[in-house]
Design a protein around this nucleic acid. Structure first.
Lengths: 319, 319
DNA sequence: CTAACGTATGAAACGGGTACCAGGTCAATT
DNA sequence: AATTGACCTGGTACCCGTTTCATACGTTAG
């Protein structure tokens, strides 16, 4: 492998000059530049980027932490991030960590070790304090409503939108409302539960713990939801489902069983995934691709702001 | 930032000894080791991984080239790759390149520049020859049946399975068979078209160019397919759709329009995505997660083999 | 008793760039 | 004529580990 020194020797200039040519710096005469370029071509030279990284202390690499990539929520988020990364010549290091906290910590380590310049955490498991400790090593952007104002974030107010969806169902006459989430822990789910409890409180409705169903991420989880519903003494008349594909699964299941939607069961989906439009699912429109793009840009520029993304309910035919 | 020299000074040993401790090499006395460890703790030391990379010439980074991440095919492939990466302490650099050839080349560049140790190309746009040129810089694994035997690959024989699906439909009485693909170019699609033409040839069936529909990747493309079908003079009685989610879209569209499946239109999906099971779609089962895992392992170990993954038709209720 | 080997340690070369600083040329301004 | 400043170039410190080589000590086998 030829290196910058070899190039310098070959083209009869100093390494500084070669470096200038490589980086398109000014103040290089046309002849020397040509000589260097020729040497580069002859030797099929390529910079050792690790040396560049070491020297510069930057890697043009951004980490992205997410639990899975095969649900529309994260896939679309990633799509948005990747799109902006492409535009800005940044590479992404993917931490698909399946909610394993130690791998999350590993991502933080990589920031500390300068292997990545910045980090986007789409879904967090570790303590905020731990993240706080690491912001000195690079920008970290979260995708949640942080109470810690010092942490940058792009987020959706899940409390607000969830409350709004509940109110909407209530206005439509529903008093027994259940909901599903991807996992019960996690800040978004906490906010949702808070909204749910506050809603029940407001209208003096009873709380049934089995109305909250977790582990609902995939299409086929719709089946599971319907099974759980069947096992309940008092069945809900409406469901909020935090992913349209799960809602779609529910609809297909209901169709098989002859349960009519929305007459016998109302359903509100989430994310406004393509399937929701197709199946006319009433849903919460979340601009995930944009959101992902904003996450990238915030990490890229190192802005320390908390940007809220507004979302809205789309009325279709499942309520 | 403290570095290895500082540690050496602090603990009264040489940098070599510190390096030995850091890398768990033998031949370090207990006392010195303890002293170094103490210094590491006191200073909250972290290795500059870029220096390690430069020195070692390896990065523990693997590139993954794919056009998009938000279709089940690629999402599941990625899931399989990511799972193995997690197990083997490798990090992935994602090149979500939207079929932009120059970005594919960039990935190859990164291999050349030693920023990544190896590269998985899930879907290729550039010339094989170009890839060939780069194998000297690191392992490259393709996800296609390569005629160039010198390139490692893990693949599905799309010719074989497509022909098999066509035969299956023919046995069921279908003679007007259309199909959809994600994009028309690309080696898998070429193999499919070859199988299609050979099939028509075998049974002396006419070729209609509009029976081949491209750009079908997403759920909502099912709508598009049905629109195209409507515009045809002679409509096919059966379709092979290279993604179950598109097939699902077609089913939902047919349901809206009162077209019964399989009576009026037979459909074979692809991938055996979760939605296929749920909607009872006859499909080609492709173990994508495993396939992804194998891609990783091949890249990881640098095997230079061509591994074929076997797939099979799953009969359900859409044919 | 000595050769051979395992253990322990440090010096220094090496990986390959970047960027600051110093020094020089030449033309334009004062 | 002297000063200024833009342009050009090279030397070299620096980024920060890894690894090889040389050295030295203590023990064991022959």
């Amino acid at each position: 492998m030829t290196n910058i020194k070899d190039l310098a020797k070959m083209s009869g200039v100093s390494v500084s000059t070669v470096s200038r040519v490589l980086n398109n710096h000014p103040y290089v005469s046309a002849e020397k530049k040509a000589a260097v370029l020729k040497a580069i071509e002859c030797t099929n030279y390529n910079r050792n980027i690790n040396a560049v990284h070491l020297s510069r202390g930057k890697t043009q690499l951004m980490g992205v932490v997410l639990p899975v990539t095969d649900t529309p929520y994260f896939a679309l988020l990633l799509k948005g991030i990747a799109k902006r990364a492409l535009e800005n010549d940044y590479k992404l290091v993917l931490f698909q960590i399946d909610y394993a906290e130690e791998k999350e910590i590993e991502a933080l380590q990589m920031l500390k070790q300068k292997q990545i310049d910045s980090l986007i955490i789409c879904s967090r498991k570790c303590e905020l304090a731990l993240i706080q400790e690491h912001i000195q090593y690079g920008t970290i952007v979260l995708c949640e409503k942080t109470t810690e104002k010092s942490l940058p974030s792009v987020f959706i107010d899940h409390y607000e939108i969830f409350f709004q969806a509940l109110e909407y169902l209530y206005q439509k006459g529903h008093k027994k409302i259940g909901y599903s989430v991807g996992r019960k822990t996690g800040s978004n789910s906490s906010l949702r539960e808070q909204a749910y409890r506050d809603f029940l409180e407001k209208y003096k409705l009873p709380f049934y713990s089995d109305y909250i169903m977790d582990d609902c991420l995939y299409f086929e989880d719709g089946e599971k939801v319907m099974q759980r519903l069947r096992s309940m003494d008092i069945q809900p008349t409406a469901l909020i489902i935090t992913s349209d594909q799960v809602a779609a699964g529910i609809m297909i299941e209901c169709q098989k069983e002859g349960i009519s939607i929305p007459e016998q069961l109302a359903v509100i989906g989430f994310n406004n995934e393509p399937i929701a439009k197709m199946m006319n699912i009433t849903t919460i429109d979340i601009p995930l691709v944009e959101l992902g793009g904003d996450l990238f840009l915030q990490a890229y520029h190192g802005y320390n702001s908390n940007k809220q993304i507004s979302v809205k309910l789309i009325e279709r035919e499942t309520v």
